[in-house]
């Protein structure tokens, strides 16, 4: 199978965060559960942004801010601003801690809590 994703240019985009109720609810239950990753390791982009850059809902991307990067899942949703990417506020967004990120497709799996905590050690 051809991996068209490989030929995509990097998308540079502003990043903003919001409090997500679903994320808050899994956080309330257990921060070390897989549901926490599912609801936190997300980057949400507007359908127009997704179309312009050939990004698909559910696709894995590497999101970088300077030297730090995370593997996150793309969610395409019109609740994101058209010119910015959106992340639920959590340790994932706080780790990136940047109002500008680059997004590029990846074949790697999502960054887990343990991997993330390791980077703070």
């Amino acid at each position: 199978m051809l991996r068209f994703a490989k030929f995509l240019r990097k998308l540079e985009i502003e990043l903003t965060t919001y409090r997500d109720g679903f994320q808050a609810s899994v956080s309330e239950r257990d921060k070390f559960d897989k549901d926490f990753v599912e609801r936190s390791a997300l980057i949400i982009i507007h359908p127009n942004t997704a179309k312009a850059f050939g990004l698909k809902d559910g696709q894995m991307v590497k999101v970088s801010a300077g030297e730090r990067s995370l593997n996150l899942r793309i969610k395409v949703d019109e609740m994101a601003p058209e010119n910015k990417a959106l992340m639920p506020k959590s340790i994932y967004s706080s780790y990136l801690d940047s109002d500008k990120v680059t997004i590029e497709p990846t074949d790697d799996g999502v960054t887990t809590q343990d991997e993330l905590l390791e980077r703070y050690r």
Binding site: G21, F22, A24, S25, V26, E28, R29, D30, K31, F32, D33
Partner: peptide, 14 residues
């Protein structure tokens, strides 16, 4: 709501 329900239901987890 979902946040509150998980607070109650997940009380003894973790």
């Amino acid at each position: 709501c979902r946040i509150g329900a998980e607070l109650f239901r997940g009380r003894s987890i973790s």
